[in-house]
Amino acid sequence: MILAEIGDDIARFPSAADLASWAGVSPGNHHSGGRQGSGKTRHGDPWLKAALGQAAVSASRTKDTYLAARYRRIVARRGKKRALVALEHSVLTAVWHMFTRDTEYADLGGQYFIERTGRARQTRRLVSQLNQLGYQVTLQAEGA
């Protein structure tokens, strides 16, 4: 469905950002007079947006995948609807890269963000959260 809406000539879009903008799944950016206005997306192709929306909802409900982990990270800060638009953008970016490089999709995995930021950072964050809730935390390594 995505290929039918985009067309077989991916060279029309020099970058993934151009494709996302054309499709209407890029975040809006309205600044005027030092104030930030609405961040609504553009109208774009309605059939492509519908297909991407279905793909995003499906991807958000998967287990141990990069897209599901990305959804959970964004929904905690921004809300469900904005997280779905961000997932649509991620799916379309992946599609652009697959078409331009003629490769298959390689999922980064559900632990990608933990590995990227590091276990020590996540440990500090979780201990800090427990301390804020009033718990005294003592860490002990596995097998010790």
Rank of each mutant, 00 (worst) to 15 (best):
M1H: 12
M1Y: 08
I2P: 00
I2D: 01
L3T: 13
A4Q: 11
A4G: 09
E5N: 09
I6V: 14
G7H: 04
D9E: 14
I10D: 00
A11T: 13
F13C: 06
F13K: 02
P14V: 07
P14E: 05
P14N: 10
S15K: 05
A17D: 14
A17T: 09
D18L: 10
D18V: 13
D18A: 15
W22H: 04
G24M: 01
S26T: 06
P27M: 06
G28Q: 05
N29P: 06
H30R: 12
H31L: 15
H31N: 13
G33A: 09
G33Q: 05
G34F: 07
G34E: 11
Q36T: 11
Q36D: 04
Q36I: 13
S38E: 09
S38D: 08
G39D: 05
K40N: 12
T41N: 06
G44Y: 01
D45T: 05
P46N: 04
P46G: 06
P46F: 03
W47S: 11
L48S: 01
L48T: 01
A50K: 03
A51F: 01
A51H: 04
L52F: 04
L52R: 00
G53M: 03
A55W: 00
S58H: 13
S58A: 13
A59G: 04
A59K: 01
A59V: 07
A59Y: 02
S60A: 11
R61F: 05
T62L: 08
K63S: 09
D64A: 08
D64V: 06
D64N: 12
T65K: 00
Y66V: 05
L67A: 06
L67F: 06
L67Y: 01
A69V: 02
A69H: 03
A69N: 02
R70S: 12
R70G: 05
Y71R: 02
R72Q: 14
R73F: 15
R73Y: 13
R73G: 14
V75M: 06
V75P: 02
A76E: 12
A76F: 09
A76S: 07
R78D: 15
G79E: 02
R82V: 07
R82N: 13
R82E: 12
A83S: 05
L84C: 01
L84T: 03
L84Q: 00
V85Q: 02
A86Q: 00
E88Q: 14
E88H: 08
S90V: 06
T93Q: 09
T93E: 14
W96M: 04
H97A: 14
M98P: 00
F99S: 09
R101I: 14
T103Y: 04
T103P: 00
T103C: 04
T103F: 02
D107P: 01
G109M: 03
Q111W: 06
I114L: 15
I114N: 13
E115W: 01
R116I: 12
R116M: 12
T117V: 13
G118E: 11
G118P: 00
R119E: 15
A120N: 11
R121E: 15
R121T: 15
R121C: 15
Q122R: 07
T123C: 12
T123S: 13
T123L: 15
R124D: 15
R124C: 14
R124G: 11
L126Q: 10
L126S: 09
Q129F: 10
L130H: 05
N131Y: 07
G134Y: 01
Y135K: 01
Y135F: 14
Y135C: 12
Q136L: 10
V137K: 00
V137C: 07
A141D: 15
A141Q: 10
G143E: 13
